[in-house]
Design a protein around this nucleic acid. Structure first.
Lengths: 248, 248
DNA sequence: CGCGAGTTTGAAATTCTTCAAGATCGGTGG
DNA sequence: CCACCGATCTTGAAGAATTTCAAACTCGCG
């Protein structure tokens, strides 16, 4: 096991050049010039595979890196002492995980893979360093963080002001839109999360989620078969969110 | 009204040196070296006074600056087409407003002064520029954004997994802790927001908020007199949050 | 083929909201 | 100086939404 400086390494196995990545328009480099993106190659140290149900990180883990999802999907959640779980988000390819850790130099939530997944590991120190010289990277990184804040406000709106069916409609439309952005069907997809996880995210019990799914099916808005969803009436779902003027 | 280059200007009226500010440990410069803080003087362009009930910015306004609260307090909210309001946060001195605007170069929520207030205007372009050369500023700014994300997750926990009384208890404890950090009493303070605004923030109707206040008073946890709050039993409030194991 | 995790559905219980009516407060004008 | 006004807050009672509890169903997998 001697170390030989000349041992050839298949770099592609370990590192991922952002410039070669097909997730460019969804991920951190979005909006950067070609020139700038080429300077990002040192940014992504390694990739890391995470098996379904495994943690990418846990609350309390020291913060060292943020992660860009290359394949697969995740949920993030926070736990209360008494065991209550709140899912704070579901993330898919191109989205960034771990931003919560910057504030206290430790992660504050758990990130769990919903399926076998792979992430690009972006050492945070390197990111700060590089974003001091690559303006586009600095700006894009700020945008990513800000987008997360805006997204969170949307979830608050959902949880604080919408009723059960509106929440689920908003959730489905959000998924649909994100699948579309990734080149998948807007109308047909597989849920990677359980009813319980959806419920936790939406502030509802799993039975309530299930009932809302059934109701949508009865109303001809969607076709559900366990985790397989087909949206039949997108405008109908949209109307649901905006019309029910009665708040909670 | 001729312009004379030699007219003496009382700079202190227009600009605020961070290095002279008593909010240092609460605000953006927190954690930076004295040396670094001295390089911040060009950062804060002007101060701006906002009267009670007036907007610092509105959803849709072009994004140009973030704001540090010097005096007073604010709420931020998002509105749905049908008029529903979701208060996304209450901010006090030293806290930063406007981070939501970075993502789309336009603000996505409204910021309204809850009392006559004053903010430091931090031009965003200048902030990016300066944070490329002042490492401490870069890092602190990232921390501020990350902290906002963590805070939002806490609100999601609140809205998604707690019942009415738990939410109010968590809200009061959070206020108490933030007042303490500012050198005010942890146990006695004036609420700057209405029951309706608290309700919107907590995902409850104002009557529910009022009833929870009354209940806490009956239980000897607090003394309420309209907006004046005296907390009598902080451990009691804390227990409320963690003990009620039954989730929603 | 059967097991178990995840899902659906029903009925009762609970929490929160809605509607309605008074009460309280700070400020204003006679 | 005081009565009154509007805004805000409190409280009660009825109603609605969601949860809880319980039981049965479905599907993929060993």
């Amino acid at each position: 096991m001697g170390m030989k400086a000349t041992v050839p390494i298949t770099v592609a196995e370990l590192k991922t050049a952002c410039s070669q990545c097909n997730l460019l328009e969804l991920c951190l480099p979005f909006g950067m010039s070609e020139d700038e993106i080429n300077r990002l190659d040192e940014l992504v140290g390694t990739r890391r595979k995470i098996k379904r149900q495994q943690n990418l990180y846990r609350a309390g883990d020291p913060f060292e890196a943020i992660y860009a999802i290359r394949t697969g999907s995740f949920k993030t959640d926070v736990l209360l002492e008494d065991g209550r779980e709140q899912v704070t988000g579901f993330q898919m390819t191109g989205e960034i995980l771990g931003l919560d850790g910057i504030s206290a130099e430790a992660h504050t939530c758990n990130a769990v893979a919903l399926e076998d997944s792979e992430v690009c590991v972006i050492a945070y120190g390197k990111l700060e360093e590089l974003s001091r010289v690559v303006e586009g990277l600095q700006h894009q990184f700020h945008k990513v963080m800000s987008r997360e804040i805006v997204r969170d406000h949307g979830v608050m709106m959902l949880l604080g002001s919408m009723r059960a069916e509106e929440r689920l409609a908003a959730f489905l439309l959000n998924l649909s839109q994100r699948f579309t952005a990734r080149g998948f069907s807007a109308a047909e997809f597989h849920l990677r999360m359980t009813r319980d996880e959806i419920g936790s995210y939406l502030g509802l019990k799993l039975e309530t989620v299930s009932r809302a799914f059934s109701k949508f099916q009865d109303d001809g808005l969607i076709a559900v078969q366990q985790k397989h969803i087909r949206i039949l009436d997108i405008p109908g779902l949209k109307k649901l969110i905006q019309r029910n003027a009665s708040a909670r």
